[in-house]
């Protein structure tokens, strides 16, 4: 157990970073919530929210459904990859799953537009294998958006889950193996239950990153329905309508609220995710 220094110096060291965070994060955040309740003339109103529900209810439902679907697929794939790599060391898979990790989302969007277009590189390959003339493209549809989201989100979730699987006491797994448990049983009865909090963190961060992504739906998403991030951007860029944009922002906060609170409580208990 390390002993910590008790001195006001600690707070002074944090003060510059705290000021920047306060001015450039907390202040705009409060302003977003505040101005969602005011109209252009500066009067208090709930009109912005009324407008959001009138215009964007479908988009809100779509965003949540899209995000939930992404999280579901990402979890299945990342648990599968993490389980495989927990038992077998396959360098090829190890590098392949991590490939998208640092590629900017915008670039992924551009790559997916080329890859998934009706006359894109994927269809150029598939039409030759199947031997047909044309295939429909999936860019500009919800399937293309789902594929792109899964592509960028999976490495990150896998990294968290694989880290948890590898950190587990090997004795549990060995004991089960000695008693003749199959790999599948070990995965479902030991690895997954004992990695609960990490899988939860992977779920939360994937959810938040997906629902707040602007660039991927901007590049590959369908025009209708839209993700709410796109609606926010349009509200600001084309209508100069900050009230409605901020109401949408507040709604996106409310959607992630329960998950965010779980995440913050967990991370604070772990002292920023770093034990010690």
């Amino acid at each position: 157990m390390e002993e910590k220094i008790k001195s006001p110096m600690g707070f002074i060291l944090i003060l510059p970073a705290l000021s920047v965070l306060g001015l450039l994060y907390v202040f705009p955040l409060i302003r977003a919530i505040w101005s969602s309740f005011y109209d252009r003339a500066g009067n208090f109103t709930l009109g912005n929210y009324a407008k959001v529900f009138e215009l964007y209810t479908r988009d809100i439902v779509y965003s949540v459904a899209m995000t939930a679907a992404t999280v579901g697929v990402v979890l299945v794939i990342s648990i599968a990859i993490a389980s495989y790599l927990r038992f077998r060391d396959w360098k090829f898979l190890d590098y392949m799953y991590r490939l998208p990790l640092f590629i900017p989302f915008l670039i992924v969007g551009h790559a997916m537009r080329i890859f998934l277009a009706p006359h894109g590189t994927l269809n150029a390959l598939l039409t030759r294998i199947i031997g047909v003339e044309e295939l429909p493209g999936i860019s500009g549809s919800w399937t293309g958006l789902l594929f792109s989201f899964v592509w960028v989100m999976t490495p990150f979730a896998t990294l968290i889950i694989l880290g948890a699987f590898k950190a587990l006491e090997p004795a549990y797994v060995e004991a089960a193996q000695n008693l003749g448990a199959s790999k599948l049983r070990i995965i479902f009865d030991i690895l997954i239950p004992l990695s609960g909090p990490s899988i939860m963190v992977a779920t939360i961060l994937t959810f938040v990153r997906t629902i707040s992504s602007l660039t991927i739906p901007l590049m590959v998403g369908p025009n209708k329905p839209n993700m709410i991030t796109i609606d926010m951007m349009f509200r600001v860029n084309y209508f100069n309508d900050w009230g409605v944009a901020n109401s949408l922002g507040v709604i996106s906060y409310l959607i992630v609220m329960v998950l965010a609170i779980y995440y913050l409580r967990y991370m604070v208990a772990e002292r920023g995710g770093i034990k010690g």
């Binding site: 965070l21 705009p28 977003a32 707040s212 951007m233 600001v236 900050w242 604070v268």
Partner: peptide
């Protein structure tokens, strides 16, 4: 302090950027 410095990861960033 911990909550403040972790919050940007837990909530969407877009509203903060546009404001």
């Amino acid at each position: 302090l911990l909550i403040l410095f972790l919050m940007p990861q837990a909530f969407p960033q877009l509203p903060v950027f546009i404001n």
